[in-house]
């Protein structure tokens, strides 16, 4: 359960914050200087990015940006309008060209989350959120296990297919089949 210090909460329930309400709070400067995101109506703090995590995002951005120049936009750790109750900030989002000045994108060609350890349980919550948002291609880069987990076939209950890609393999983007990325180019160099 989300909050173990409120064990008997079943008597009532959470009042989910909506994305509209959340955006208004952000505009008022409510979470200034904090790293938070809205997941299924509750505010969640984001763990700070370690060098390995940040460097992986940097590598991914470089590879994807160069390969998709002009065909799609790359957004790094920016809000994604996943649902009326969720506004996560995926590590990397590949979205249709546009500026998104009026609202955050609600659809994506590809989302990528980088997890330092397999204990980063956010991934499960986020996979469900992205599946429900209809994101057809979601990659989870797991640095500890050295694997890129590619989730596809989104349904309301989650992704139907999960395929692990390891060193030596390449992953193609679902929306841009001509673009593939080598797992070795994404993961930190082996020591």
């Amino acid at each position: 359960m989300v909050a173990r210090d409120l064990p008997a909460l079943a008597a009532s329930g959470f009042r989910p914050l909506t994305r509209v309400e959340y955006d208004k709070l952000v505009a008022m400067g409510c979470f200034e200087g904090e790293k938070v995101e809205l997941l299924e109506g509750v505010l969640v703090t984001m763990s700070p990015s370690g060098p390995r995590h940040a460097a992986t995002i940097q590598r991914l951005s470089r590879l994807i940006y160069a390969a998709l120049l002009g065909r799609a936009e790359l957004r790094v750790q920016m809000p994604f309008a996943a649902s009326p109750h969720a506004e996560p900030e995926p590590d990397v989002a590949v979205v249709a060209p546009g500026d998104y000045d009026d609202d955050h994108p609600a659809a994506a060609h590809l989302l990528v989350e980088v997890a330092d350890s397999s204990l980063d349980r956010d991934r499960d919550a986020k996979a469900l959120i992205y599946a429900r948002a209809g994101v057809a291609d979601y990659w989870g880069v797991n640095l500890e296990d050295g694997v890129v987990e590619v989730r596809r076939e989104p349904t309301a209950r989650g992704y139907l297919s999960v395929t692990p890609f390891r060193r030596g393999q390449r992953v193609a983007l679902l929306a841009f089949a001509d673009v593939s990325i080598a797992v070795d180019d994404v993961l930190p160099p082996p020591r």
Binding site: V36, L39, E40, P84
Partner: peptide, 19 residues
């Protein structure tokens, strides 16, 4: 506001991470 369904949605968000 309708609550997201089903109730288990937020199960995977660790309590310690709630803002």
């Amino acid at each position: 506001v309708a609550a997201p369904q089903p109730d288990g949605d937020r199960d995977a968000v660790p309590a310690a991470r709630l803002r």
